[in-house]
Every structure is written in structure tokens, then in C-alpha cells.
Amino acid sequence: MKAISLERKEKKKKVTYDRWGLYFIIPFFVVYFLFTLIPQLLTIFYSFFEYYRKTVGVYIGPNFIGFQNYVNLFKPIDSSGTIDILKYFGNTTIMWIVGALPQFLIALILAVMFTSTRLNVKGQGFFKTVFYLPNVIMASAFSLLIFQVFGRVGPINQIIVMNGGNTVDFLRQKTSVRALIAMTNFVMWFGNTTIVLMAGIQGIDESLFESARIDGASSFKVFKDITMPLLKPIFIYCFITSMIGGLQMFDVPQILTAGQGTPDFTSKTIVMFINEVLRAKDYGKSGAISMILFIITGILSLIVYKITNKD
């Protein structure tokens, strides 16, 4: 009996390919664990340690200090009472909003315009190509371009002087620096948003628009009563992903202000903060800031997930 059952077991070798699926995903996961997951865990790990470079080659720590890094981040460092992280968070938010509002407004107008069968806009391919172009361009190159254009001797100042004005130091004034960063982000992203919203509108059943029009709705009414409500999930999705991207704003302000966040750190963003601390090799503090940013984006992502899974 036993011998038979043993034989049976041996014979049970099957034709199965499923192990190949595992082989195929191995490279992805090995690389993911080595180059992403372990670093991520280390980041979190060090955020609970005092661990920084005092001078060249001399490190303090790692000493476990619990949440002290996080607590320190929310302590004012000087008599003025400003808390760095909140300030930089505020900078980031303001610059994102100033750029995102026109970005979404104009993208929405363009998307409606391009999808309108009544207006039947010609040359859409050309316009879309132009509007999306800034998005494929290196953010660092674009920022340097803006720096050149708005610099002290740049074309804009030359035009102002030619018309009898005085040189404006765009890059040394809080408002103008923030505005320039917001504008750069706007120029780089409104084309992308337009295309995504357009796809959203095109995804709406054409006959809904037609029936609304036959029922006597004006163009504006169609937009308000049909387009907007049905576009809402995609619109919100776009908006929140833009928010997540905005929180991670780095390239543009970093290059435009040479990493300084001039003037007086009013254009310094959170990621610039991480970058600065990390360059100084303070692993504990940079870990803590990264974690805070991660938690905020995590919450925002969760909202995106909830929204996209609703429809």
C-alpha cells in the first residue's frame, strides 16, 4: 500500500507554468527591496535617531531619541519664533495654489473648448503640442531659462528700462520670486491638465450633451449641469495629484534661487529643506521631515484612492 502511494506522489509532478510567473517578477522585487524598500525603512528608522555629521568625517550617533527629531522640528529655533518646517510648508502651499488655480481654470476652459462640437476648434493638434511642450522640458533648464529672462539684465528688465522704468530685481523680492515659481509650474503643467480633463470630457456619453442641447440648455448650462458634475471625479483626482506633486516641489525653486529660497527663505519648499539637511548629512532630521511629508501625501493619496474607486 505504502509503496503505491509513494509512487503516486512521484507521478504527481504536474505540468504547471505558474512558477514562471514568480521567476518573472523576481528582478522587479529584488531591485525594489534593495533600492527602494530598504532605503525607505532606513529613512523611517533614522528619523528616531540622533545621527548627523558634526565636521568632516565625524558623526554624532546614531543614538535613539524617540520622537525628539519630530519635536525639534516644531520648535522655534530663534527669538523670532518662526518654525522652519511650518514656514516652508506654508511657502510650498502658497506657491502651489498660486500656480494651480490658473492652471486648472485655464485647463478647464481649454478642455471644454477643444471638445465642443459647436465651436469645432481647428488646429487642435498644434495647440495641444504647444501647450504640452513645457511639460517635457527639463524643469532645471526651464527654471534657468526663467532666471535668465527675469534676471537683472534679462530681456524683461531691458524692456522695462527701454520704456523708461527702473530695473526690477525680480529675484530678490518675495512676491515676485513666489510668482515666478508659481508661473513656471503653471506653464509646465496646464497643458498636461488640459489633456487629462479633455479625455475626461470625451469619456462622457456624447448623447448626454446632445439631449441637453435639444432640451434647450445653453452652452454654459450644459457645462454647469452636465460636464462639470460628470467630470468631477476626474477633476478631483487631477487636483489632488497636482497637490501631491506640488508638495514635492523642488527643481524649480531650487534652481531659480540657487537652493537658497531667496529672499529670506520665503521661497524655500519642504523638499528643498530635506535636500539641504541631507546634504549636511543629518540623517535623523531629514528622515523626520521625509516622514512628515510622507504622512501628508499618504493621506492625500488615500483620498485619491477613495475617489477613484468610487466610480
Partner: peptide, 27 residues
């Protein structure tokens, strides 16, 4: 393919898509 744990792996990849890249930068 239908290997064991495929479901978890697929969900895992979707989840990590959401993690911002600079979280790993410190480590």
C-alpha cells in the same frame, strides 16, 4: 500566471505606487 500570493503581490505594487520617491532618499 497564477502563482501563490499573486493577489497580494499585485495589491502591493499598487500600494507602493503611492509612496513618494523622496521617502527613500535619506536611506
Amino acid at each position: 500566471y497564477n502563482f501563490k500570493g499573486k493577489r497580494i503581490i499585485a495589491a502591493f505594487i499598487l500600494a507602493i505606487m503611492m509612496i513618494p520617491s523622496q521617502l527613500a532618499s535619506v536611506g
